[in-house]
Design a protein around this nucleic acid. Structure first.
Lengths: 204, 204
DNA sequence: AAAACAATTGATCAAGTGACCAATAATGAG
DNA sequence: CTCATTATTGGTCACTTGATCAATTGTTTT
């Protein structure tokens, strides 16, 4: 077999180890889904004893909730930072929609669907989902309000646009990325946003 | 404690027992979700030994897939039977949309979301989901085509309308039935269908 | 250098899962 | 009424899960 690799156990500071576990948990969520976030799976990926995960996260449900919150929040920050960097309001919306329609976002869409479903039975995850959704709503509402679009009520427009995007998430699961349903969903998001804000998006 | 209830074991014919198990599995799916469909949970609900379930369904994944297929197919048949009973094409669509927006459909919406998510890791369930979605697509497409609406391509219109309805399913999980997001989603379905088919729906 | 500290291990527990199968008893046939 | 058929039981196996805790070992302090 392979050479016996000596079990060097690295000792990290609590903050570092905690961050490492959280990060690995996030990877598992994005790559394998919430159902794959088990003590042993995570410990093996970290090259660490299962008990160590318990030491930093006494209950794994809290870890799942926090890891999801981390991913969701990071995505919102990234997307809106990129959007607000654009010059005109219309360009900002165009950038946001383009990023949301990017096939690379598929993993995040899958995670959202997973979280919606799993939050039925997991209170902490459910709380994190609600917080993340509110964050989305607030950010998008602010972006619309600042833009001065022909939208009577920015909050309502934000809710409607988010509903379109959520619906897009489903296509990420049930269809392959190149399936006809996917293109239909894309078109509906673009047309819906244009209609909602009274603008024309010039997406590649 | 309570009086010792004698364990009368009723002996059903194979067909009857199989149907009983399938029906009970459907109840579990609608009431507690796919994750709650376990041998023991199901056996207890039936007042039967766990092994009996295995006897009729050697692998429980097949049972889950078949139970989902049963529920989904039954819903399609019921909804379209009610719709086609209406006199005019517009009334048919109105009836279908009204039924889909009925709060009582919440359990079915939750099951669909559950199935979409779970089908990621369960091949047989995934197959059943695809069949059910195709059935929906075919039925709706036929209804639109027969109606002679101002829709250039009935198949595309059906896909778009189903995407709207799928998006509505998410609201069933994340919001309470009386939350604002729910009303927004309802409005989007109605307006989307009206725009897609060039009609005006008169829903209560 | 020695001691105190604490991050980490490894083993173990109880609970829950799907699956399997010989034994049992209800039902129907002769 | 008797017997054969078979639907059904109940016990068990192997596995996975989250969780707990004394023991260990690396790091830091004295």
């Amino acid at each position: 077999m392979a050479t016996m690799l000596k079990p060097v156990r690295r000792r990290l500071k609590p903050d570092e180890r905690r961050a490492a576990i959280l990060s690995a948990a996030g990877d598992v969520l994005l790559h394998d889904g919430i159902g794959a976030l088990t003590l042993r799976h995570l410990a093996q990926r970290l090259g660490v004893a299962p008990g160590l995960v318990n030491h930093y996260f006494p209950e794994i449900e809290a870890l799942a909730a926090e890891a999801f919150a981390m991913i969701a929040e990071a995505e919102v920050i990234t997307l809106f930072a990129a959007a607000t960097a654009m010059a005109t309001p219309v360009a900002q919306v165009a950038r946001l929609v383009a990023d949301l329609l990017d096939p690379q976002r598929r993993a995040v869409s899958l995670l959202w669907l997973d979280a919606w479903q799993a939050s039925r039975n997991r209170a902490q995850l459910r709380a994190a989902v609600i917080v993340a959704m509110d964050l989305w709503q607030d950010q998008l509402c602010a972006l619309i309000a600042r833009g001065g679009f022909a939208a009577p009520d920015p909050a309502v427009s934000a809710t409607r646009i988010l509903a379109l995007i959520d619906g897009l998430s489903i296509q990420a699961v049930i269809d392959a990325p190149d399936a006809p349903g996917h293109a239909v969903a894309r078109g509906m998001v673009i047309e819906g946003v244009q209609r909602e804000l009274g603008i024309v998006l010039d997406l590649v």
